[in-house]
Structure formats: structure tokens, C-alpha cells
Design a binder for these strands. Structure first.
Lengths: 175, 175, 175, 175
DNA sequence: TTTT
DNA sequence: TTTT
């Protein structure tokens, strides 16, 4: 479909230490639970009320997974930009079930830490020098699948490397 | 939780004519199915592939519901801004099930038609004068539950009266 | 124009204590300078580089202005959602000049504090009952110019009374 | 700064055919003027009013520039995602002047055509197979600085190629 | 002028 | 200068 946009922006706190799994060919996948909440004053009682919403975030990007692995802990406040995806699966009785997740994969996915936690631990990017639009803190823009060749015009763009921090859209990652 | 954001932005097409229900006290609720899709060229086969994602959108806002009722038809292209909400329910066997929906309710919810359809049908807002940030087309910003008392602090905020919700725009505020 | 969107989302730090002015009829206007920055590793030197961008934010909404006045100080980290506006003015030599600002006014404007500062200072909303979608912290959704007439179609939209602008949230709407 | 976000989202119409320039080393830069507008009913007069805002968009990304060059014409409706940037320059009298633009460069930049125009002209991406999150229409996600080397781990990611559609952040492009 |  |  021409002209389609599917974007989720969350700022919230991580409910538990992230789980990192690996695909058979070794790529990491991180799962996060993020809480957002809104509060308001009840019109009748006048008392403050709060409602929390829990979101499941799945990170397919290698670079972002590294950030998650090294820095994201229970309680961390994150900025997340990803896309909605509803996954179909079967429960034990064989019935179709659907789960909607926020997927960080490929373009226009971002994960940025909004509190100081996890910082100062050296270069979280290991030997590579990923670009980062999020500043000095653990932040990572998943800009797809950047090759690492330095001979390309733009691979010379500092960061580069990064190479692989986005899994392929058409890969069949079991999850 | 201080500092929380829960925002979904979609541009996609409506899969079927919307359903409008009513609550017991008469407020409308509209349900929409919206498709977004991405396409890419497969690295191996070289052929173009496309993946469509279907989203369930629930509109609680009366003004937005009117726009939906009058203008949104199967095939319409919409811009939607809302929030994620996961609703728990029980299936016929009593098992817990969860459905994630994009809710348009309260502030920061928007629905704008991006194609010409549905326009020109007179003032869809009837006698009311809702504001619209989306221009001349059927567009509606769901600004939630506006104070009904004229003594409320914010109703004093110029504009007031929905018709003028951009009221400041034509004021000559010196700054 | 049908189907128009003009939205800016910033997360950044406030460069100086905000200035609050008042219009002749007493409405407050707050001005903020917000810095965002991106950093990356230089491709040649390998050293980390950083570029800071400064944004001028103008808050026309009374409720948001109160939040700014009471809580936002130099250094605060904010989430801002507003619209771009370019203002024309004349310099002392009479030449046309243009300034582009992020305006928080009307719907779909939000200001949320992302650090703990400013919290715990009692109810910043005083006697007023603004809604807040941002949780317990100083947060405010600028929903513009709410209808002051209780006969308006949208004031009938449940919630009403700003205090409860998420009113539907605690309603038990069957769907 | 850790945890910074600078994002602009526009849906609007192009005011004039785009201008494409080239840097000394041959990379294209496209300039667009985009109009967004909001309309509302005046509270006093009851008549409909409209205000148009004009935005300057600068596209540094090669892939996006190609899309602009081939498909974007005066009147086209676009979805744009970029970042704010204020550029300092000197007028003829040597006075400092500032211009704020929406820059499409690097991560998290997107340009998608929302009307049918320009479509059907074959594969606008030439021999390359860029990834695209925007569907079958002329759409392009600027995911940073992708190298063109096919030996890179991720260049195998379908689309890839694309190579160079983002100029470097620290390049000194005169404009 | 912020922040890391 | 767009669009409705």
C-alpha cells in the first residue's frame, strides 16, 4: 500500500530485567515489558486515579539488543520508537491466539535511555562505532542494515560498522 | 508514573465500513480496522514482497465518532493518532484473552481523512462547532472531556467554545 | 487543507529558567529554550562528536504555563509535543525577519517532565482541575479551548470537567 | 546529551516543484516547501477560518532525493519525518540570520507520498533494491548511511544497496 | 544556554 | 507557494 505509516512512541519504565534470546543463527532478540501510565483526578470523588498499561516490546536489532543487554534493567525509563505487529500463535489446545507487540526492527526504530542508569560503562558499542542520534547516553537508532564496508560513501560516516543491527524483515525468526 | 507517553501514529486504509455501537447512556463508539503495509524487495529472489498489518481502532470520542459515521468508508485512507490499550476478556471457555487496540479517546487523539472521500457533505459537525486541526476536510481532534463549566480555569483560556479551539491563533498576542 | 499534520516531538533539556509573560488580558505565555543533541563517532578521527540543537518553545496554554512556572527549571528534561510555527517580525531596520518556534497551544500539545525535579510540591494545579495524561508527575496535555457551554455536543462527552478528562477510562464501557 | 529526541512529523502539500542541487562531490540535496494548515470556526463570527503554515524541508539523503526528483511535484501530498535544524547565515549586510528547517538525513527520516501521483513509473529505485517501509508507493526510509558494498553482513538485507542515501552529519555541505 |  |  502506498503511503503507509505504522509507528509507536512510548516513554515508560521497564517492568523487569529484559530477556535476551538468540536465534539459531546467533542473532539476539530482546524482550521488554514497558509500563506507561496516566493519572487523572476523578470527577466525582476528586481523588487521584491511575491506570497503567503494559506493553511488550521485541527488539530484533543487534545493536539495540546490545544496548538492552548491557544497560536496560528493571525500572529503567526508556524512549521507544517502533512499529505495531500482531503475531498469530496457537495455544496448547490448538486455538488461534494473537499477540500485539511493539517491534524494533529496521528503520525508524529507536531505543533511548532517559535516566542515567547504565551509563558510564565504557563504550557499550563494543569495538564497533555505531552512529547514534540519541546523544552520549545509551541510545541507538536502528537505521536498518548498514554494511560495514568503509569504501562506501556513507559507510565512512563514523558510526558505520554497526552492520547488522537490524534483522531482516523477511527472516523467519521463531519466537 | 511521572513522564509517560503512549502514542500510536498510523496512516493506512480502512478495511471495512466502520461499526458504530452505542453505550447504554447513548454515547457512540466506533470500531475500525486499518491496514498498514510495508513492502521491500527480497534479497534472494529479488522480487517485491509486501506485508500487511491490521490494526483495530476504537473511537470513544463523540465528535470523532460522528466523523467516522459520516465520512469513513471501506477503503478510506486515514491518519490516526491514539494510544495503545490492551483489554482483557474471557473466551467462551472462560480463559483469559487479551486484545490490543488503538484507542482514540481524550487528548492527543486525532483522526484525519487523507483522501478526498466523504468531503463536501455539508458540515458534518451539525450544529456544533467542534474545532478541527486538520483543515477543511473531515478531521477531528479528540480533546477529551472538555470542561462543561464556564467557570473552569481553562475554559477561560480564550478559545473556549469548541468552535474556537485554536482561538489563540487569530489573537494578536504580542510576543 | 484536508488532512494536514504539523507535529514536533522533542526530548531535551531546558537551557535556562523559563520566562513567563502575560498578555494584556492576563493570560500567561511561557518561553522555553530546549536543547537536543546527537552524538556520533567521527569516521576519520574516531573521536566522539556532538551537535546540539536549540529550540524555542512557546507555551500559550494556561495549564501548561502553570506547570512550567512551578516546576520547569534550567536543566530539566522535558518531553514536548507541539506544532511548528514561523512568525514574521521586523528588526530595527525594518527588515522582515522570521522565527520558527514550537508552539504548545490547543490540542495535541503536551509537556511532560522526565526527571524527578519539581515533584512533590503539592498539587501544582491549585484549585483547578486540569486533566493530566502524563501520570503523577507534572504533566499536562494542552487540550486547547474547551467548550464552556454545557450544551455543546462534546461537553456531553462524559468526562467533561477537566479534572476528569480521561473520564471514560474508569467507565465501564461494554465493548 | 543522553536521551534526546528531535522529531518533526508533517503531512502537507508541496507548494512548488522541488529544487535539487548538488554538492561539489556530487551528492544531491532537495529543497521542498510544504504547507500544512488548520481550520476552525471562529467563535465570534461563526465563520470558518484557516491558517496555513509553510515549512522548509531539506533532503540530504540520496535515495530520498531520487524519490523527490522523480515523483514529487507541486501539489503532492507528503508524509515527512525528519528533525529540526536551525542554520545560521549572514545576510548581505553581514548580520546574523537564522533559518529553521526540517532536515531529512540519517536515521528516522522518512518521506512518503500520500496521493497517487508519481506512481506507476516503474521502479523508481533503479537497479537498486532499497528497503521501504512505506509500501509500494514512492516511499523511502532514510535509515542513515548505508554503504553499498554487497559483502557487508547486512547489505544482504534485501533492500540494502541504497548505499548512500544519507549524507554525513559532519560533512560540510554548503547550503 | 542544557545535558552526558 | 499547496490543498480543501
Amino acid at each position: 500500500m502506498a503511503g503507509s505509516v505504522n509507528k509507536v512512541i512510548l516513554i515508560g519504565n521497564v517492568g523487569a530485567d529484559p530477556e535476551i534470546r538468540r536465534t539459531q543463527d546467533g542473532r539476539p532478540i530482546a524482550n521488554l515489558r514497558i509500563a506507561t501510565s496516566e493519572s487523572w483526578r476523578d470527577r466525582n470523588s476528586g481523588e487521584r486515579r491511575e491506570k497503567t498499561e503494559w506493553h511488550t516490546v521485541v527488539v530484533f536489532n543487534e545493536g539495540l539488543c546490545k544496548v538492552v543487554e548491557q544497560y536496560v534493567k528493571k525500572g529503567a525509563k526508556l524512549y521507544i520508537e517502533g512499529a505495531l505487529q500482531t503475531r498469530k500463535w496457537q495455544d496448547q489446545t490448538g486455538n488461534d491466539r494473537y499477540s500485539t507487540e511493539i517491534v524494533l526492527q529496521g528503520f525508524n526504530s529507536t531505543l533511548t535511555m532517559l535516566d542515567g542508569r547504565g551509563e558510564g560503562g565504557g563504550d557499550r558499542r563494543g569495538g564497533s562505532d555505531f552512529g547514534s542520534s540519541g546523544g552520549g547516553g545509551p541510545s541507538y537508532d536502528d537505521y536498518g542494515s548498514q554494511p560495514s564496508s568503509s569504501s562506501s560513501p556513507s559507510s565512512s560516516r563514523g558510526g558505520s560498522g554497526s552492520g547488522s543491527f537490524s534483522r531482516d524483515m523477511d527472516d523467519d525468526i521463531p519466537f
